[in-house]
Simulated assay, not measured.
Amino acid sequence: MRHAFDPAERAAVYRAIHERRDMRHFVPGAVEPTVLARLLDAAHHAPSVGYMQPWRVVRVTSAVTREALRGVVEDERLATADALGERREDFMKLKVEGMRDCAELLVMALMDGRDAHVFGRRTMPEMDLASVACAIQNLWLAARAEGLGMGWVSLFDVDRVARLLGMPGDARPVAILCLGHVEAFYPRPMLESEGWAARQALHLYEDRWPAEPARDARRDSTAAAD
């Protein structure tokens, strides 16, 4: 195809996509400032609805703030475990973050004043969040290409993190990102290896959403008769 990358470049893009992992285990070593700058630049070149570029990044350099954030995550980890019922013990065995060990801790957030951006958001205001997710994905893939691991931590109380980082009232933290060197990348997603979940088949529909199978209706009527 006329505008395609050459085969080696294409292979590298797909390799980064397929070998990206949500990392929770890190080894000592700083991220070079030039590398960190490249990663943040990759995030900043993500697509955004209405070109609003709603991402804001807080780089956490204070050990006190890092530990405070970890405390917020730990509180939510315990609350999540309690909410999982019969899967509580399985969940508690999982390592869900590497906040103490990672070289860099970043908080990706939604900007304040988002309501002023109407282009692309009038009927779907959540497109600002989708745009931030694109920035996180860019950062993740670039980190994998640089040989660095990244983990997305989403177990936290949004308001507590916002207050801790001094965010304006209409800004919102989306992700705590652990970034750093790793001994090795997981061969498979960790939650898959741990038996928590399996990769699903792609749900691809043509033209319209498929109708509910008639057999479901039959099963319901049989159950009612019982």
Rank of each mutant, 00 (worst) to 15 (best):
E212A: 14
S193I: 14
A184P: 08
A43I: 05
M108I: 15
M52G: 08
T222A: 08
G180H: 05
D128G: 14
Y51G: 09
E212H: 10
E183Y: 03
V35I: 13
A68D: 11
R87L: 09
T80A: 11
R199A: 15
R163M: 09
G151N: 06
A16M: 01
M99R: 07
G195D: 04
R87S: 09
A198H: 02
P187S: 02
R56L: 05
Q137C: 03
A42C: 11
E192M: 09
R100A: 14
S154H: 12
A225F: 08
A162D: 11
S131T: 10
R24H: 02
G151C: 01
A217T: 12
R199Q: 12
V35E: 00
H45A: 07
G149Q: 08
V107S: 06
R10K: 10
G169Y: 00
C178P: 02
L106M: 12
Q200G: 09
L179V: 07
P125L: 09
L139R: 10
E146L: 09
V27W: 07
M52H: 11
G180K: 04
P28W: 14
R114Y: 10
D115M: 12
E9G: 09
A184Y: 09
P210R: 06
G120H: 13
L202N: 11
W140F: 07
H25R: 14
R144H: 15
M111R: 14
V13M: 01
I176W: 02
R215W: 12
L202F: 10
W55S: 05
H45S: 07
M111I: 06
Q137S: 07
A201P: 07
T222W: 08
A37D: 14
A81L: 00
G180V: 01
T80F: 13
E194F: 03
L177C: 15
G166L: 10
E146S: 07
L177A: 07
V118R: 13
M92S: 03
L177G: 05
P7E: 12
R21Q: 00
G147L: 07
G29C: 13
A63V: 05
Y51K: 14
R20V: 03
Y14M: 11
L148K: 11
P210D: 04
L177W: 00
L165F: 05
M111E: 14
G169P: 06
E126R: 14
P168W: 12
V182E: 04
H45T: 06
F26H: 00
F91K: 05
A109R: 08
D157P: 01
E74V: 13
L204A: 15
L164Q: 11
G180T: 04
E206G: 08
R38M: 05
V64M: 07
P7I: 04
